[in-house]
């Protein structure tokens, strides 16, 4: 993976001492109005540009992800939301043609630094995908997968407790309590997606990235997932890509609007929807483009 921040970009990368303070820094507030969410940034990106086989997909994105908040990424199809969210846990590493420049930090640590361990990063920054993708294993094994590979639990009992807790937090436990050995793929779409969320939170990540988690689900299943996200935000930092403006408004504290590979506007969700600064944002939130 090519990671070559230019000298100027390197100079702009906030060091770990200042990053946590950005939110309280009045200068930063001017520079980054999103800091008004009042929470320190859990993750940041600076000058992030991504291209696939030399075809640019993202240009120069500066964005802060506030801790214990829900950040929504919105924008028309193909604007780079998926590309952006996949940069946050280096999921783009597995695409051969993908090149990433600029910097992304997590707790002030540059996640694209050469000595950064992707495996450790991904245990801290978990991900839920657009299409539910349970493993071809039982519900129990699906949820226990992460704890097992990371050796998180000492005994079988501990493991079971963790699995049940994760299923409970994902709001799935009551529905599957007596068929934990059934294959994960036997669940309905919405249940599968909640299983994937349970699987992700079983690893106890700090950040959960969700790429259009409801796009394959019906409205009732969507409502369940939304409730779930609202509850999860107590303990996790959540980034969610969504196509639905209503969902972004209902769920998120902060919204970032992408258009044609650029971050056009970011800020408190209310501000972005009520008083967008940019014409393109206004058009989009009013349903004129997209």
């Amino acid at each position: 993976m090519a990671h070559a921040p230019t000298l100027t970009q390197v100079a702009e990368i906030p060091n770990s001492a200042t990053i946590g303070l950005l939110g309280d820094n009045p200068l930063a507030l001017l520079k980054h109005p999103e800091a008004r969410t009042g929470k320190p940034a859990k993750m940041t990106s600076r000058g992030l540009s991504v291209s696939y086989a030399n075809k640019p997909a993202l240009h120069d994105v500066d964005l802060d992800i506030p801790v214990n908040r829900v950040t929504a990424l919105i924008g028309p199809s193909g604007c780079g939301k998926t590309t952006y969210i996949r940069c946050l846990n280096r999921m783009n590493d597995i695409i051969d043609t993908c090149r990433v420049e600029g910097s992304v930090t997590h707790d002030g640590e540059d996640i694209y630094a050469p000595d950064q361990d992707v495996v450790r990063l991904r245990t801290r920054v978990g991900m839920v995908f657009q299409k539910p993708n349970p493993f071809p294993k039982s519900i129990y094994d699906n949820t226990a997968y992460g704890p097992r590979i990371h050796g998180m639990t000492g005994s079988r009992d501990e493991e079971r407790a963790l699995v049940l807790d994760s299923l409970r937090r994902a709001g799935l436990l009551d529905e599957v309590r007596d068929r934990l050995d059934a294959p994960g793929t036997s669940l309905s779409g919405g249940q599968q997606q909640r299983l994937c969320i349970a699987r992700a939170i079983a690893v106890r990540p700090e950040v959960i990235l969700m790429d259009e988690p409801c796009s394959a689900l019906d409205p009732i299943a969507t409502a369940r997932i939304e409730e779930l996200i609202a509850a999860l935000k107590q303990d996790y930092t959540i980034v969610i890509v969504t196509h639905s403006m209503q969902q972004a408004r209902r769920l998120s504290d902060k919204t970032a609007f992408f258009h044609l590979g650029r971050l056009v506007e970011q800020g408190n969700t209310e501000d972005v929807f009520e008083a967008p600064q940019d014409g393109r944002t206004r058009d989009y939130v009013m349903g004129r483009i997209g």
Binding site: D117, V119, R120, I149, H150, G151
Partner: peptide
Amino acid sequence: MEARLKNRHR
């Protein structure tokens, strides 16, 4: 956890 990570990479 760190030791385990090392083993896993090995």
